[in-house]
Write a protein that binds this DNA or RNA. Structure first.
Length: 135
DNA sequence: GCCAACGTTGGC
DNA sequence: GCCAACGTTGGC
């Protein structure tokens, strides 16, 4: 089991949207590092859902319900998608500020590389943020 | 709205 | 293969 974090602008697609939809095809990733991370996801892996731009906080937990497959909206280029389903929202969202205030989270990509939209998380970091969120 | 950080493109 | 120019992301 691996752990991940994905970003989405809530104006574009929020965790609430994922809950309403029941599942979502995670398309639109156009960054090779992020794509390669998508491709390493396995069914059942857990994913923290982060709201970028507005919110700047981890708001919920999702799960990979379909492993990576070629992006059906893209015919010419080699991009990938996965399907995600909601697991549950955090009781309280965990802000970027709170994450940055935790020394043990100082090395995660969310802090180190603010532009990466799909990133792996060490299990300990996943557990820490989940616990901070009361889930 | 600004701009730093990062990734990509393309000329050489 | 290098690197300057450009475009995009996302925190502030």
């Amino acid at each position: 089991m691996n752990y991940w974090l994905v970003k989405s602008e809530p104006e574009d697609y929020s965790f609430e949207d994922l809950q309403e939809d029941g599942k979502a095809m995670w398309d639109g990733v156009r960054n090779y590092a992020a794509r390669n991370n998508l491709r390493k996801m396995a069914k059942g892996d857990l994913v923290l859902f982060y709201h970028s731009k507005q919110g700047l906080e981890v708001v919920g937990i999702a799960r990979v319900c379909r492993e990576s497959y070629p992006d059906p909206t893209e015919e010419r280029e080699d991009w990938s998608v996965v399907d995600l389903e909601p697991v549950k929202p955090l009781q309280q969202s965990v802000t970027l500020k709170a994450i940055k205030a935790e020394p043990e989270l100082a090395d995660i990509a969310l802090v180190k590389n603010s532009r990466l939209s799909v990133m792996p998380l060490p299990e300990a970091a996943f557990a820490k943020i989940r616990d901070m969120g009361g889930a």
